[in-house]
Structures are given as C-alpha cells and as structure tokens.
Design a binder for these strands. Structure first.
Lengths: 123, 123
DNA sequence: CTGGATCCCCCAGGATACTG
DNA sequence: CAGTATCCTGGGGGATCCAG
C-alpha cells in the first residue's frame, strides 16, 4: 500500500483492521499513557513513577509496566544494588508513537471536546 | 499550542493528559473502529453494518452506534418510511480523525508487530 | 525499594427474546 | 428493518498483605 489513506473502492481489510485494534490495545491500559508521558521526559525509577502518578498503586503500576515492557514500549533496567533500583525508559517504538499521541490529543481538543460540550454542540 | 511535542521541562500536564484519555475512550469500543472504517467508505444502513461486520450482534451494534453518535463521531438519519430505514454516516470529526488512525496503524505495523514477535502467536 | 500473591468489584461485552 | 429489554460472564482494575 503506497498511500496512507483508506481505499474507498475496497471492502473492509480485516487484517489491517486487526492491526489497528492491536495498536490500540497496547496503549489502552488505564495508566499506560500517563506512564509513557512521564517517560517522554526522562527515565524514571519505579518509586518516582509511583509518587508522580496520582492514585496509582504499586500493584497497578507493576502490571502496567510489565505489559508495556512485553509490548516493547518500555525498557526495564535492573541494577543489582543493595537497595534495589529499577529504571524504566522509553524505546524507539515509544518515541515513534509520540506524534500520533499528540495528534490524537489535538484532535480531541478540536473536535471531541466540542461534541461533549453537552452531548450537543449548540441549540 | 505552538509546538506539537511534549515539553521536556515541565511536569505532567494533568488536564491535557485527561484530554488524551478521553480521546482514546471515544474510539475504545470493541467495534467502533471497524464501524468508522466502514463509514469512511460511505454511508451505511444499520443492516448493512450488521451484515458486513463479522461477529457483531444487533445489540452491540446499536450500543456502539449510540455511543459514537453521542460523541459526535457518527450522524444518525432516520427516514420515516414504511420499512424503517436508518442511515449512519461520518462527521467532520470522524474525517479529521482519519490521518491519526492511519498513523496509529502504520506505527503498529512498523514497531508493535516486531515487539510482539515473541509474545504470543495468532489464533 | 520493588514487586509478587490474593481476593473482590464493576462494567463492557455478549446471548437471547421481544417489538413498533 | 431497526431496534429495545434482560440476564449473564470475563477480565481489567483495585485493596491489602507478604517477600527478596
């Protein structure tokens, strides 16, 4: 496919739609975007993420990080030190995702927000 | 917003992160993307969507469409005819979202797919 | 400090039957 | 044809305690 737009003459492409679903799944965790957001700034330690993200528990943070790691969206580095230290950082895939994330946010701010302005833009 | 990139010098922007979460929520329904995908081609009748989307039930189709409508992502047109006819079509917001959706899919195909190489095979 | 093991709750998703 | 009205289920999310 040489053109990044939807082919109006063809029926639904099931496999590509599946890809789309999977891509969404990767970032669908409740805290994943916020974690990635922090990692866009810099590498964080586990405790830093925990303190910075309001409302998250160790358990959830661990789970979300494990999933992100399995999906190649974060890198986990363990330091064999006396007080355990684990650092999480973004990957190439994470970096490549940033423009899309920002585009999604911009889209919401322009269209979604208005639509939710009361379920009806104006009357 | 003059720059579409994350400010590395600032802490987490809670409100913008909330916007991002909401944007994701709008398209997080299991069948929403596939519905939008079909509407990118052309306006569809309820029955058309039902027949075209494999595995969806009337119930789920109705629910997803209602949510999309409430979020301003689809337009619902009812024709007062003897055999009821209802058509669904995309909105300006839907159109504006297309590039982002395609970008997300392209991202997955380039990065996510490779990352899943060792996770779990398909079924 | 990091994170595993358990138990619990809620709700998106689904199966089924009925209707203007 | 295009929906509602019920009921049920799985699993994501959460609270809490334990451990290296």
């Amino acid at each position: 496919m040489d053109n990044m737009t939807i082919d109006k003459n063809r029926a639904v492409p099931p496999e590509e739609y599946a890809d789309l679903r999977k891509a969404l799944t990767l970032i669908s965790g409740k805290w994943k975007l916020e974690i990635l957001w922090l990692l866009y700034h810099r590498t964080h330690r586990f405790g830093e993420l925990r303190k910075t993200i309001p409302g998250i528990t160790q358990h959830m943070l661990t789970r979300q990080l494990r999933e992100l790691e399995a999906d190649g969206l974060v890198t986990r580095t363990v330091f064999a030190e006396v007080p355990p230290r684990v650092e999480y950082s973004m990957t190439e895939a994470t970096k490549a995702l940033e423009p899309t994330i920002m585009a999604l946010m911009a889209w919401w701010q322009q269209f979604g927000k208005a639509a939710q302005g009361g379920t009806q833009p104006e009357e």
